[in-house]
């Protein structure tokens, strides 16, 4: 495999006397689709916030795209895309306006921005929704649009925090096709999800329990070593040991 793009060593985040993320170590390669699983409250979102520069770690080491998360978080931000479970587009702007705004923020402008925006609108099939507000679009479309925007600047890595929550299996499947496309373009995908079928689509999966990574392997590898037929069973075996509940 190619170079590592996300490397962490004993990365920890403490809130008061609560250790949200407890010494996680991982090494994610370029172009990989990495599934970051865990029950609610296991510390996934906290870990992701540290990697995207939204939260300063308490201890340990981590680098993203070769930049240190402690000291170079602003440099990291130029090279990553991020789509959170909280819906992050502006409801009172049209799809085009959203694309142009975020594109502009990531340094695209002029012809290039125009071209990219048109391309996005076309590939998402949003031509006839051009002038309607994002708030009026179905959730699945919003998610696809948000994902497209999060990779508009061709980042090295895209972080997806439960990107497909609340939509039907067909829409989720379509969303994953887009993730594959991004991965084919060489974009590393770091994704959290609660859907175990989605975990099967990943190149590699880690399962977090109570702030620690309890297992990390390819879906096949995990199923083999836990002697189960689905990732869901692996997950249940591990998550049952959890002492923490919902946050």
């Amino acid at each position: 495999m190619a170079d590592s793009v996300i490397v962490t060593k004993d990365l920890t985040r403490v809130f008061g006397d609560f250790t949200a993320v407890d010494a996680i170590t991982m090494d994610i390669k370029k172009g990989e689709i990495f599934g970051f699983l865990g029950a609610n409250g296991a510390g996934k979102t906290t870990a992701m916030k540290m990697l995207t520069g939204l939260l300063t770690p308490s201890s340990g080491e981590a680098s993203v795209s070769g930049y240190d998360v402690f000291t170079e978080s602003e440099k990291i931000k130029k090279r990553i895309g991020y789509m959170s479970q909280k819906f992050s587009l502006y409801d009172d702007l049209t799809p085009m306006e959203n694309i142009q705004f975020y594109g502009g923020v990531y340094g695209l402008y002029g012809k290039e921005l125009k071209q990219k925006s048109e391309e996005l609108i076309r590939s998402l099939g949003l031509q006839d929704k051009r002038s309607s507000l994002v708030g009026s679009l179905p959730l699945g479309w919003k998610q696809k649009l948000a994902f497209a925007i999060s990779i508009i600047h061709d980042p090295g890595i895209v972080f997806l925090d439960e990107p497909t929550g609340g939509v039907d299996p067909i829409t989720r499947r379509q969303f994953w096709e887009r993730i594959y496309e991004a991965s084919d373009r060489g974009i590393t995908v770091f994704v959290t999800t609660h859907y175990m079928d989605e975990a099967e689509y990943c190149d590699r999966v880690s399962i977090m329990v109570d702030g620690r990574i309890e297992a990390m392997d390819s879906p096949e590898g995990l199923k083999a070593s836990f002697n189960t037929s689905t990732i869901e069973d692996v997950f249940i075996q591990l998550a049952r040991k959890a002492e923490r509940g919902d946050e």
């Binding site: 939204l54 931000k77 959170s84 990531y106």
Partner: peptide, 13 residues
């Protein structure tokens, strides 16, 4: 509405 988090992961100073 949560958009500030999105802005915070962009290079906007």
């Amino acid at each position: 509405i949560g958009t500030i988090e999105q802005l915070n992961v962009t290079p906007i100073t």
